[in-house]
């Protein structure tokens, strides 16, 4: 998938479903890392603000889809690329200086493109930290 100006890998273990995006309603007062909420299956679903993550940036255009994580967070996506049954190696660990390291894991070459694995747990920890620091 492509989001926040990067090609990213998301484990299907973390994914609940992919849905058509709808504009999120901002939360009163705002919440760092969260654009707002959308209604999904009758419940509120928070939508990630990529630009609030360290080393992240907003989408280049309107999202093509929302990836709904099992942990009830929606990721707006610029594009869904494809699914992979197996991942080729070798994996390269991220550099210490990489600001996106808290939410992006190792990288791998796929068809000549460097793709980073999304660290969902790391990203959730980051969002929780944003909230507690607020």
């Amino acid at each position: 998938m492509r989001a926040a100006g990067r090609d990213l890998l998301l484990s299907t273990r973390d994914l609940r479903e992919v849905v058509t995006p709808s504009p999120p309603t901002p939360l009163p007062g705002g919440l760092p890392g969260i654009q707002g909420v959308v209604i999904h299956h009758g419940e509120f679903l928070p939508v990630l603000a990529w630009e609030d993550l360290p080393g992240g940036r907003c989408l280049d255009g309107p999202p093509e889809a929302l990836a709904v994580l099992r942990t009830r967070l929606a990721l707006p996506l610029e594009r869904l690329v494809r699914t992979l049954d197996e991942l080729p190696g070798p994996w390269e660990e991220p550099e210490d200086a990489d600001p996106a390291r808290p939410w992006l894991g190792a990288s791998v070459q796929l068809g000549g493109v460097v793709v980073r694995q999304l660290d969902v747990e790391g990203m959730l920890d980051l969002l929780r930290r944003f909230r507690s620091e607020r």
Binding site: P28, G42, L45
Partner: peptide, 14 residues
């Protein structure tokens, strides 16, 4: 409807 953990905003119940 309550807000999920990641969208919980101070002062808002739902």
């Amino acid at each position: 409807r309550s807000l999920p953990e990641l969208a919980q905003t101070p002062g808002i119940m739902g």
